[in-house]
């Protein structure tokens, strides 16, 4: 039973050898020479590698299966300039807290294709490594490359806003959050922005102690997602002094929502907490405080 791991490693080495023999006429050639054998500058050829080893192989197995990395390496052995293979290699490391390796591969992807991966790295810094300064710098570079683009369902100003919020620069956070809402609504009052855009703007105003503005944004957020735990919780904090009963009611709603598995509905919540995300513990503490 305990020989399974070493045996698996042998299998992996064998797979690399087999893939190499298929692709390369001589195993002793250097990687550069091998790359020249194939047209790695040809997008169609690179895409065929991505389809063969990533889409049809790596994507069909668990990230943590050692073969996953092997399939990515198979692409890079043929064409070391396939940015997405580096980005795919980074994913399991980033999701398991190995930021050293994860960022090493992600940096390589950005170096090869900044147009495609600069905003993704910025997002990873914002949500996974909580590197607010790094995230803002990357989003600024991404804005120059692709103005007004979105990543992971949100505009660049949304993530810049939460990075400024996380670093305590509330004024800049407000500016970015307002920009984010403007990008979504285009100043048309009949269009609503994402509920988390309103939630985070509300949190920014809460941090700035601008309570009147805070309430309206939490209410706008709740208009779209009435059981959003964070909007109910932070609205309760706004109301706790003047409307104790309503605040308690909002906290109960937040509690019930979390118990029912409701959340901010962001794709990466499984892997990392979002800034100002709450848990049952904080809700219960606040309820205890209001009941005393």
């Amino acid at each position: 039973m305990y020989h399974i791991f070493p045996l698996k490693l042998k299998m992996e080495k064998l797979l690399i050898l087999v893939l190499s023999l298929i692709f390369f006429p001589s195993f002793s050639q250097t990687q550069v020479e091998q790359s020249q054998t194939f047209d790695c500058n040809n997008k169609a050829f690179r895409d065929s590698l991505v389809s063969k080893y990533l889409e049809k192989k790596a994507h069909q197995i668990d990230y943590n299966n050692p073969k996953y990395q092997l399939y990515c390496d198979s692409v890079l052995m043929v064409c070391p300039n396939v940015a997405c293979a580096y980005q795919q290699k980074s994913i399991p490391y980033m999701k398991s807290g190995n930021f050293e390796k994860g960022m090493k591969f992600l940096n390589k992807a950005v170096e090869i294709d900044p147009e495609k991966y600069m905003d993704y790295r910025a997002f990873m810094k914002c949500i996974f490594t909580k590197d607010h300064k790094g995230a803002i710098e990357d989003f600024e570079k991404a804005e120059k490359i692709n103005p007004n683009k979105f990543v992971m369902d949100h505009s660049y100003p949304f993530f810049k806003g939460i990075s400024y919020l996380g670093s305590g620069n509330f004024k800049k956070a407000e500016i970015e959050m307002l920009k984010d809402i403007e990008l979504q609504t285009k100043n048309d009052t009949s269009i609503t922005a994402h509920f988390n855009s309103y939630l985070y703007l509300g949190i920014v105003y809460l941090e700035m102690q601008e309570i009147s503005k805070t309430e309206s944004f939490f209410l706008k957020s709740l208009d779209q997602h009435e059981s959003l735990p964070e909007a109910n919780y932070y609205l309760a904090i706004c109301l706790q002094k003047k409307e104790n009963a309503r605040a308690k009611n909002l906290l109960e709603k937040a509690k019930k929502a979390i118990q029912n598995g409701q959340s901010m509905n962001e794709d990466n919540l499984l892997y990392a907490n979002y800034p100002y995300q709450i848990s049952l513990f904080e809700i219960n503490q606040k309820l205890l405080e209001l009941n005393n």
Binding site: S96, P275, Q277, S279, L280, F281
Partner: peptide
């Protein structure tokens, strides 16, 4: 098996 396969992060917010 990693924590994310079962949606089990430590049950406290990051701020706390």
């Amino acid at each position: 098996p990693y924590y994310y396969s079962f949606d089990v992060k430590y049950p406290l917010s990051s701020q706390t």
